[in-house]
């Protein structure tokens, strides 16, 4: 078993013995389920309206349910993912196990990778459970699976980016609450940069700022558009955040 796998096993164990994952997971699934229910009911109401007006109705579940749902989940992730990542490094430093980890014969890359992978797996598990929504819907209706799949790809990439930012924030402090708020703040800034970008319009600065925000990249994927530009954005942002985490953790030893 490689050290990275040992790290992941240990972190997963730590997640699942603490109530955090259960609470966060329950809240996440509850909100997502509720949102899905509301969008489906809304779509149903529209169908009935159309039926009364035209005598027949065909509604597009992809537009009415999934696009709305994917847009909303983005917001839920922004709130819950910092709670999952906040403990990763902050707790180690608080409980003085950080020194133990840093004096173990395991590279810093492996520590950062192990920590990130463990929380990413937790996130994938939660995301996987939301897959029940399209599966259930597919039993009763027809819709196009392709944009749903790209939507899930978008959520996976978006979640990975959020988690990497959370891991970075956790490395910056030994206080978990501070870590959660820092990652929350960073994510909000990235979010609002999209608004700032559209405000500046089609200028060079506006385009750069819009590009830096995850909003338009994620929107493309939700609309079923898989563009390498967007994939590159997520991968490079992810790598940058993990690299910064590496530097921050490394420098924590010097102080």
């Amino acid at each position: 078993m490689t050290p990275v796998r040992a790290m992941i096993t240990k972190e997963l164990r730590s997640y699942f013995v603490s109530p955090v994952v259960y609470v966060v997971g329950a809240v996440f699934l509850l909100i997502v389920g509720l949102l899905a229910y509301l969008y489906i009911v809304f779509a149903g109401a529209q169908a009935i309206q159309l039926l009364q007006m035209h005598g027949q109705a065909s509604i597009n579940l992809n537009d009415l349910v999934f696009r709305n749902l994917f847009s909303s989940i983005r917001f839920v992730l922004l709130i819950i993912l910092p709670i999952l990542t906040m403990r990763l490094f902050a707790e180690e430093r608080k409980l003085r196990t950080f020194e133990f980890l840093m004096t173990s014969p395991i590279g810093l890359n492996e520590i950062v990778a192990g920590k990130f992978m463990s929380v990413f797996l937790v996130f994938l598990g939660l995301l996987g459970l939301t897959g029940l929504i399209p599966l259930t819907l597919s039993l009763f209706s027809d819709f196009d699976w392709y944009p749903v799949m790209t939507g899930y790809l978008g959520l996976t990439l978006l979640g990975a980016l959020f988690l990497a930012i959370g891991v970075l924030a956790s490395a910056l402090t030994e206080n978990q609450i501070v870590a959660a708020f820092v990652s929350f703040g960073l994510l909000l800034v990235l979010w609002l940069m999209a608004g700032l970008g559209s405000l500046l319009g089609d200028t060079a600065a506006g385009q750069v700022i819009s590009y830096l925000s995850f909003m338009e990249h994620y929107d493309h994927l939700v609309r079923g558009l898989v563009d390498t530009t967007d994939l590159m954005y997520f991968f490079s942002a992810l790598v940058l955040m993990l690299f910064l985490t590496h530097r921050v953790v490394d420098s924590a030893r010097w102080r």
């Binding site: 078993m1 050290p3 796998r5 040992a6 790290m7 096993t9 240990k10 164990r13 730590s14 013995v17 603490s18 409980l95 003085r96 196990t97 020194e99 133990f100 980890l101 004096t103 173990s104 014969p105 395991i106």
Partner: peptide, 27 residues
């Protein structure tokens, strides 16, 4: 083998889980 001032233990693990983790980290 290093024992810092505060024993570097993870409270949420059992003793054997902890030792297994430590052993794996060290190959």
């Amino acid at each position: 083998g290093y024992l810092p001032e505060t024993p570097p233990v993870y409270q949420e693990l059992t003793v054997s889980e902890y030792l297994r983790f430590v052993g794996r980290l060290r190959g």
